[in-house]
Simulated assay, not measured.
Amino acid sequence: MYPDIEIHTKDVVDWVSSKYLERTGKIFRDPDRGIRSLYQKGFLQKIAKGVYKYDPKYAQNKRQADFSSAQKNEILKRDGYKCVICGAGRQNGAELHVDHIKPKDMGGLATIENGQTLCSQHNFLQKNLKQTETGKKMFIRLYELSKKEENQELQEFCIEILQTFENFNINGHIEWEK
């Protein structure tokens, strides 16, 4: 309705709640969840905490879907049917997942290049950035992807993060190349 305008969540909630009441005569119970769902499905872009933007071109990008079965199989095969972080595979009893390197909610696409194989443990742990080893490996893979995509801004961001790991001697055993 308002393309390319950054709108605060509270303003959207007020507008949606009033329109819903006007059209249905009922109270909209959880507009925040609805906004979050639109964001997670790729229809809204998150600009900052509580600020979203609708960009019709971004919303029409249906490649932000989950990986297809064929893509999952290709990613698993490419990664040797092993977790890219710890090396565990099915032969070790690990449950394997195919995960987005650059998350969908950050614009990551369902492409072979943006996929990685993770064991279930690391798939769940990688969401917790307190796991410094997982975090460093994730930024290394994101950096490599940004080089392939020729995304200079993302490359610079990853270099700064990885340099911080080095500056504080965190996980020095994990090496990366600029």
Results as ranks from 00 to 15, higher is better:
37 S>L: 11
90 R>I: 10
52 Y>W: 10
79 D>M: 06
12 V>W: 13
63 R>K: 10
9 T>E: 15
28 F>C: 14
154 L>N: 05
6 E>A: 14
168 F>S: 08
121 Q>R: 10
52 Y>H: 12
148 K>D: 04
38 L>W: 10
143 Y>F: 15
134 T>G: 14
160 E>I: 01
137 K>N: 04
27 I>K: 14
149 E>W: 14
169 N>P: 00
14 D>V: 02
69 S>V: 06
46 K>S: 12
76 L>Y: 08
95 E>H: 11
103 P>V: 06
118 L>H: 01
104 K>G: 02
152 Q>E: 15
156 E>I: 06
61 N>K: 09
38 L>N: 06
61 N>V: 08
127 K>I: 05
33 R>Y: 10
91 Q>I: 07
98 V>G: 03
11 D>S: 15
55 D>N: 14
2 Y>T: 08
23 R>P: 00
14 D>L: 09
95 E>M: 10
46 K>V: 02
22 E>D: 13
127 K>Y: 05
43 F>V: 01
77 K>H: 08
128 N>R: 13
124 F>R: 15
159 I>N: 01
58 Y>A: 02
60 Q>C: 01
13 V>R: 08
153 E>F: 07
114 N>L: 06
84 V>A: 02
81 Y>P: 00
54 Y>H: 13
54 Y>P: 00
119 C>F: 12
160 E>T: 12
110 A>M: 07
8 H>Y: 09
132 T>S: 14
102 K>D: 11
175 E>P: 00
79 D>Q: 04
86 C>A: 11
134 T>W: 13
18 S>E: 15
51 V>C: 05
123 N>K: 03
38 L>C: 15
58 Y>T: 00
22 E>F: 11
103 P>S: 12
120 S>G: 10
